[in-house]
Simulated assay, not measured.
Amino acid sequence: MGHVFQQLVRDHNLPPVRLHDLRHGAASMALSAHVDLKVIQHQVGHASVVTTTDMYVSVMPQTAHEGAEATARLLRDAAREYVRGQRSKPSSRKQPPGSGGAIA
């Protein structure tokens, strides 16, 4: 199969590329498309998802950026929710004795 592929590359004046490079690229693009790692593992025929992640799946820059953005959103949203929760709690300050909470 490798010889046939190389002949096709030459016949069509494509840049030098190995069949294995396409396999790696396909796994990397699938990861960028948010395909589950177990699916990618099955597609490339690995016995372990660890092999897939260690050997073939590269984190593309856009995917890394999206991951950082998602993490930042999660933290920001959690902080906003915490602040909202603090604002809705009854005040823990005690009223001075005899004031009954009324303003004079």
Rank of each mutant, 00 (worst) to 15 (best):
residue 2 G to K: 13
residue 65 H to F: 05
residue 86 Q to K: 15
residue 98 G to W: 03
residue 40 I to N: 08
residue 12 H to L: 06
residue 71 T to N: 07
residue 61 P to W: 02
residue 15 P to V: 04
residue 46 H to L: 07
residue 70 A to H: 02
residue 83 V to C: 11
residue 69 E to M: 12
residue 83 V to S: 09
residue 2 G to C: 10
residue 20 H to S: 04
residue 85 G to D: 14
residue 9 V to Y: 01
residue 60 M to I: 05
residue 4 V to G: 10
residue 27 A to K: 02
residue 4 V to D: 15
residue 71 T to A: 14
residue 59 V to I: 07
residue 53 T to F: 14
residue 34 H to M: 10
residue 98 G to Y: 10
residue 4 V to A: 15
residue 27 A to Y: 04
residue 63 T to R: 10
residue 79 A to M: 08
residue 80 R to S: 11
residue 104 A to H: 06
residue 24 H to E: 05
residue 40 I to S: 07
residue 71 T to H: 09
residue 16 P to K: 14
residue 81 E to R: 12
residue 24 H to D: 12
residue 65 H to R: 15
residue 48 S to W: 02
residue 4 V to H: 15
residue 5 F to D: 11
residue 18 R to F: 05
residue 31 L to V: 01
residue 1 M to Q: 09
residue 84 R to G: 00
residue 54 D to C: 08
residue 77 D to E: 09
residue 53 T to A: 11
residue 12 H to C: 14
residue 12 H to P: 01
residue 57 V to H: 11
residue 68 A to W: 06
residue 9 V to F: 01
residue 96 P to K: 13
residue 101 G to N: 13
residue 5 F to W: 15
residue 93 R to E: 14
residue 46 H to C: 10
residue 103 I to P: 00
residue 22 L to H: 07
residue 101 G to Y: 14
residue 20 H to R: 10
residue 85 G to L: 04
residue 56 Y to N: 08
residue 9 V to E: 04
residue 80 R to V: 08
residue 19 L to T: 04
residue 87 R to K: 13
residue 4 V to S: 12
residue 104 A to F: 05
residue 14 L to Q: 08
residue 2 G to A: 13
residue 34 H to K: 15
residue 78 A to K: 12
residue 46 H to T: 01
residue 60 M to D: 11
residue 96 P to Y: 06
residue 23 R to S: 05
residue 52 T to P: 00
residue 83 V to M: 14
residue 10 R to Y: 14
residue 91 S to I: 03
residue 65 H to C: 03
residue 6 Q to P: 00
residue 101 G to L: 11
residue 97 P to T: 05
residue 70 A to D: 06
residue 86 Q to F: 01
residue 94 K to N: 02
residue 71 T to V: 08
residue 37 L to Q: 09
residue 52 T to Q: 05
residue 54 D to N: 14
residue 76 R to L: 07
residue 55 M to L: 12
residue 48 S to G: 02
residue 54 D to Q: 15
residue 35 V to G: 03
residue 55 M to Q: 11
residue 96 P to E: 08
residue 92 S to P: 00
residue 35 V to S: 03
residue 36 D to C: 02
residue 35 V to M: 14
residue 82 Y to W: 12
residue 20 H to Q: 06
residue 71 T to D: 03
residue 102 A to Y: 09
residue 84 R to P: 00
residue 80 R to Y: 05
residue 98 G to H: 12
residue 94 K to C: 02
residue 74 L to G: 09
residue 19 L to C: 11
